[in-house]
Amino acid sequence: MEKIKLTIDGLEIEAEAGTSVLDAALANDIYIPHLCHHPDLKPVGACRLCGVDVNGRMEMSCLLPVREGLDVKTNSPEVGATRQVAIELLLADHPQGCLSCGASLQCELLHIADHIGVDGERIERLRRPSEPLPIDNSNPFFSFDPNKCVLCGICVRTCEDIVGLGVLDFVNRGSRTVIGTFGNEPFIDSICESCGECVVRCPVGSLAPKRWQRPSHEVQSTCVYCGVGCGIYLGVKGDQVVSVRADRERPSNQGSLCVKGRYGYNFINHKDRLTTPLIKKEGQFVEATWDEALDLVAEKFADYKGSEFAALASAKCTNEDNYLIQKFTRAVMQTNTVDHCARL
């Protein structure tokens, strides 16, 4: 890939040809405020926060391709003033209950306000929104609070360009513009597939998971549902799985997940889990130790070696599990009658 040299705030940096000034800056740890930009999506230049000065002209850095010798200032007076107005407008329009908002620590709006610096008195002079809009709680896994929405359109573009479904679009015009489904129906009544791709990309707390706990650590693994084999990170807190996050590096899913993969993990901790071996005695299952159960199984199986025995391996188990089951069947039970549900 061709490398381009450019200057940002006097620092010479290198970027790949075809990248935007914003991406080049971020890649070099130079922060430029941005709200509607997402690395997975094409830029739209809607939030007007990422403006930079190029030879006295303000350009949106998300839309500006890097050029050899480009001299970019991230904070000229004009750029600063425009940015200040934009963030003040956003903050004046936003609910203030940050402490009870699930997004607080990841909130891009707070991040930007923190970067630009906000004068509370100036915000006070602006007019606050009047009637709050109703929150859409219809989906079991996430909620949509239009009052927190900054209309960055990331969810709209995610559903269209990543999920390929196009559930969401802008509805209404002017300051009444909201994000909505077709006919502005609740999510549950739309064609939404609940994959949550929009939820994970929401820069504020507008599209938010209903149950969210920050895990204490994450473990890289592979989803257990279908044959796509999505790469995931299981979030762990104590001895519980509390979250699932998509692995962006895994070729099979490249950061995407479906509704089951993302939200369908609670069976792991379900109270119905079998937690001890059981032996049927007089028609009733009775709890047993592993030694009791395994001894009994070994003793009984010994009577059925050869054609009287069958094993069914499992397409849900690991390669190692399956290898051992077939090996056990062939080598110990002396039969090749081992199959699994591949055909179902």
Binding site: T222, C223, V224, Y225, C226, G227, G229, A313, S314, A315, K316, C317, T318, N319, N322, Y323, I325, Q326, K327, R330, N336, T337, V338, D339, H340, C341, A342, L344
Partner: peptide, 18 residues
């Protein structure tokens, strides 16, 4: 398209009678 998460692996690792 293989259905289960590891139906491919179960086949690959001999979970088949033949």
């Amino acid at each position: 398209l293989r259905g289960q998460n590891n139906v491919q692996g179960a086949c690959d690792l001999g979970g088949l009678p033949n």
